[in-house]
Design a protein around this nucleic acid. Structure first.
Lengths: 192, 192, 192, 192
DNA sequence: TATGAATGAGTATTCATTCAT
DNA sequence: GATGAATGAATACTCATTCAT
């Protein structure tokens, strides 16, 4: 039992250190040796747990997806209003902003099966947001638009702030800094 | 003179080949050797013209900024209406979409002084767009908002489509595929 | 007793799996981990039974030598005629041809004390063959020659076919394919 | 010119050192780092000249094939008698015996396109030998047999001595030690 | 005794950069 | 000024072996 626990601990440690270093220096500039060193295990140990660097990256992204979706689930009762839903989204992203930024920024250079994790995270998000938005569209409070348009507008804004954070503030997480403003602007856009 | 011309020609050739390869395979996965080979000059020659790989990247981005701004200037008389201005923007970006996508996507891993070139490209753009937008805001046709908000909304959408192009269409340039739709949606958002 | 039996069983299993994998993929490209995995025991277990990879190889070769010599013994009454003896030799080698090929092929890269096992296998073989051959030499049926010459000629031919089997047939074991022909040719050579 | 010469010199040096080390320690246990070190160039330099370890091995084997065939050509006028032809063969192999032994011994673990170099070396040899042998068969001096049988018998004997040289003498090259004896025995076998 | 997680010294290969010609 | 051979520090990955449980 202790044996399995120890293994899990090391594995989790590797994933954790990887996430930290990825967030700090970027995914592609973090080496497997860096990660092992950060956890103070031998370089070879990393490959006991992940047969490939890519495998480790996948594990990190997978875990990140879980974390994000759990955190979002915890913060959202199902009958949340649109504004609160988006606010929750921002606050969750803010919490993991450093890594999320790297993920969004480097997703192009990640293998497709890893990039697709990001996509599927967003698919369920899009659906949830639109359900809340639809209610308000029907009430005539906000403009009618398709689910894709709605989601792209929101994500476009959020990602733009994240990817260009050094343009907007030196303080981080940027989403805490500009979150209120972003939300207000978004609602200004979509209200009828 | 011929000496200087030759030198300039080689330098320009390197910049050109670099841009092509960056667009094709990404900036970080293009090696200096690839670039020299593409121009059929020796690997060492590249370092006669650029003391560092980073220097070359900077030159490429610089030149790209010029090209973009020239192309935009050529397509825009100063009294253009907002819609035509944005349409022109899209058509210029579409023309250089492959490289622009790499630039946006990898800008995080580029050194700050290169990333800042991107920013300054956008600064003048933002001003121009807002001048045209302001006219329509004053007429009450579109919602009032700050220059920054206006620009971020537009760029957020454009970049989101570019960075996730494989989500929206297999055809490229994506901005030609979805340009009309994007414009329509953007005006739907900002109209009063 | 059960303890000791279990231990012996594991040890034997390791030797068996090793032989199988050596035959299949070659000795030097089979890892200790592969072997343990094939027997479904832990990697560490292997080193409980054999303190070194080399030790295991030695055990495999030892056991193989026994097996070969037993099989040969079973097929040969002591008063066998030369032709039948050689035929028996071929049929025994054919049975274990895959591993035998690896052994002959890689023996140069094996440590001397392992290679010498091969040699001692052959020593008794040589003696046996020569005794049968001597009888026929005395009768004047086959040419007179020394034991070493006789044995080298036979083994040279056999090994040449085995080591270059892909040159002679795609079917395996090669010794079944060409055995008849080989025997006929050998007797053609040695007959007076 | 000096430039090209220098390059060729390094390349040739690498091939030469590789051959030496391959002969000394075996092909598969010689690392690219060993080879570079032996020539006192950096490890990276090796990959300027050979994009792959396999490429280098191929070059070594190719060059070896040339050398062997040249040396054989030099020693053989076309109207040589069989005995002199085989004697020449032995003396050439003796000269390069160490490497030849490794080549024969490890050919099984070499990629097919390299192994095929060995085969094609032998094909022309076989033809040459048989032409000389045929003449003597027609005269009734030696036994009639097919080209393949003739060649296999000879090569089988030669390779057997080479591969098991430590069995026959401590002195090397073994083919010098036992050459006379081998030839005499071979002719004893084939004479009518 | 068996386990299996951890080790660490390799291994081939890459690439921006240098420098003698 | 251009060349291109050489460099060497990295890089991901391998594997026999060890050792605490």
């Amino acid at each position: 039992m202790t044996r399995k626990e120890q293994k899990e601990k090391t594995r989790a440690g590797l994933v954790g250190q990887a996430e930290t270093l990825f967030a700090l220096n970027g995914i592609s500039s973090t080496t497997t040796a860096d990660i092992a060193k950060a956890l103070k295990v031998s370089h070879g140990t990393l490959f006991v747990h992940f047969s490939t660097r890519e495998d480790l990256i996948k594990a990190v992204v997978d875990e990140f997806g879980e974390k994000l979706s759990t955190a979002l689930g915890a913060r959202c009762s199902s009958d949340l209003k649109l504004r609160d839903l988006l606010k929750a989204h921002l606050s969750v992203l803010a919490e993991y902003e450093d890594f999320y930024m790297r993920l969004v920024s480097e997703s192009q250079s990640l293998p497709p099966h890893i990039r697709s994790i990001l996509y599927s995270m967003n698919a369920s998000l899009s659906y949830r947001f639109y359900r809340a938005a639809k209610a308000e569209m029907d009430k005539g409070v906000i403009k009618k638009m398709t689910q894709v348009h709605f989601f792209n507008t929101w994500m476009g804004l959020v990602h733009y702030y994240i990817l260009n954070r050094d343009l907007f503030s030196e303080r981080t997480p940027i989403l805490v800094e500009v979150g209120e403003d972003l939300l207000r602007h978004f609602f200004h856009l979509i209200k009828t």
